[in-house]
Design a protein around this nucleic acid. Structure first.
Lengths: 332, 332
DNA sequence: TTGTAAGCGTTATCAA
DNA sequence: TTGATAACGCTTACAA
């Protein structure tokens, strides 16, 4: 069965005995079409569920009013908020977003970027900072503006909006130490770059306090059950743990649950700190202490910068640090 | 600043002193291009990060090898698994997916469907069953196959793959009663259709057991903190509650946390049952009892059906019930 | 207010 | 193995 031949401007024009030019105009500048004509067109469009074919205008116009967004994961609230932020800017501006996900894999990102570029998006927002050389090549060639969101790479592809994950970790772990922790372990899941940055911050803080950093990591994706498993492993491998700094809240919640199960009191026997400040941490007892990442703001700023660059008014500043804060948690 | 004029087949052809036809062939049937020519083209494509413009082929070919997927939410693991299932089928088949999200809003779904249709996707997968009439019109007009995934609507737009949410709820609540619950409350968040179906199943089960159904709902989106709030509200409004059946795991976890906090023992004083069987429920103590929805399977089956319909070999069966099961939870 | 003509970058078809 | 030509459906620029 072949796809039904779809309705074209010409079809509508024929039906009304006018030219497709008038129908085209109806969509782009309706006020320049006679009211009577306009209404006759509207009726057909309405009744027949007409949707314009986008291909010809992708071809004939330089700008497509579309931006591409590649997020690593579909199930991480962090990126849901980021996209919300982006859309709050792009939609009123009349831009569509084309969304893709990479599963934290640079090879997949490459495929998705190629797909988005094949649709001639006017700009890209990426959430990772390590890309394949082919990805970089394609983007360079396309000449469109790009924002790398979430981190602050030393040499961004183009623009970057995010926060300093390493410093946030450094500060937070230092505060754990100040509050009395001496044996803080870092819990990590399958490594993306942000996990590594957070680890570096953690290690630096420990060293600077004259303490010894140790990590427990899993090759699996982060999850609550992995958090449990890592906590168990940490307790098995090390003595005298009095705190865990977790690369994200999933792990932290899992770790906290494990402690609860084993009768280890949080925060009295064990401080537990997470990253991202997801809703669930706020529903836990005790409330999870966690680093608040301004992801919606990052989305907003990223979209604003991108749209500005698309319209030709680039900021001279290329990198924007949106800072971070801490939840008022009770788990440390 | 205007978008850089992008590289075309013609540009590559010019550079090599051949015609664009040969370059075009290189992409679609490389074996029909002389090896020497092929290598010269490959080199340029490689070096310059060339990405084909998709627009012309959208225009000149009936099939685009692309399907559109609209999910309600970017942060719900349920849909992440669904999309994983879909991609496990579409990608090997050489189909790209264009992803959009509707925020559980039929008006937004309409916008997104229009966008996807403007790219001439060959098929659609939707995760909701209530659509605006314009959405239905547009889809009808386009003539492409559609799968409604997750539920089993009585009269699907076209095809449907899912499970019987009402029956799953009915069975589960009946089992709660069999286990001794007499005062089970239904906790609901902002209503989508699945929430309503689950409520119906719950009410029927209560009536059939000679008990009185009661619900507590919030207009907000489901979240862990909302689960807490609903549990508090339920305890305030009703006496003698001995169980809560929650429309999803977020609420159930929140409810369980609230009980924990108030010294209400789960499951001894209170049975808590959720829906979807997310990872977090399995990390809780006690392990959450929850209805397992076969979402990855739903994704796989949906994609298979859609691709079959696109290639013209439709199944005569239109609706597929993939069943459900229960986690071995300890919270009832 | 409406229409005409040319062109966007690719692919199908046929020819060399 | 490669090339020439027409066609896809819309928009731009100009004309009526």
């Amino acid at each position: 069965m072949n796809k039904k031949k779809s309705l074209t401007l010409q079809d509508i024009a024929d039906e009304l005995g006018i030219t497709k030019m008038t129908v085209s105009r109806y969509f782009r500048e309706p006020e320049r079409v006679a009211k009577a004509t306009r209404e006759r067109i509207a009726k057909i469009v309405e009744n027949q569920g007409f949707v314009q074919n986008r291909a010809p205008s992708l071809m004939s116009k330089a700008i497509t009013n579309t931006i591409g967004v590649v997020i690593p994961s579909l199930s991480n609230q962090v990126f849901a908020s980021l996209v919300e932020g982006i859309e709050s800017i792009t939609q009123p501006a009349g831009f569509d977003i084309l969304l893709a996900h990479s599963g934290y894999d640079a090879r997949v990102e490459e495929r998705k970027v190629a797909m988005l570029l094949s649709y001639r998006v006017d700009g890209l927002i990426l959430c990772e900072t390590s890309h394949t050389s082919k990805t970089i090549n394609m983007i360079k060639q396309s000449g469109i503006p790009v924002v790398e969101a979430m981190e602050l790479p030393e040499s961004p592809l183009d623009m970057a909006v995010g926060m300093d994950h390493q410093r946030a970790s450094y500060d937070t772990v230092s505060e754990m130490v100040r509050r009395g922790c001496r044996h803080v372990i870092y819990l990590a899941a399958r490594l993306d770059n942000r996990t590594r940055l957070r680890q570096k911050g953690y290690e630096q803080a420990m060293w600077d306090a004259g303490l010894t950093p140790s990590s427990v990591a899993t090759p699996f994706h982060s999850s609550f059950t992995q958090g449990q498993a890592l906590m168990r492993q940490a307790l098995n491998n090390y003595n005298k743990i009095d705190g865990v700094f977790c690369t994200n809240d999933d792990l932290a919640i899992g770790a906290m649950q494990y402690c609860l199960e084993k009768g280890i009191r949080v925060p009295y026997d064990m401080a537990v700190v997470g990253f991202n400040a997801l809703d669930i941490g706020q529903a836990m007892k005790p409330r999870l202490t966690s680093v608040v990442t301004p992801r919606e703001q990052i989305g907003i700023k990223s979209a604003e910068l991108l749209l500005a660059a698309i319209s030709g008014s680039r900021d001279t500043q290329r990198t924007f640090d949106l800072g971070y804060s801490l939840t008022e948690g009770k788990s440390w």
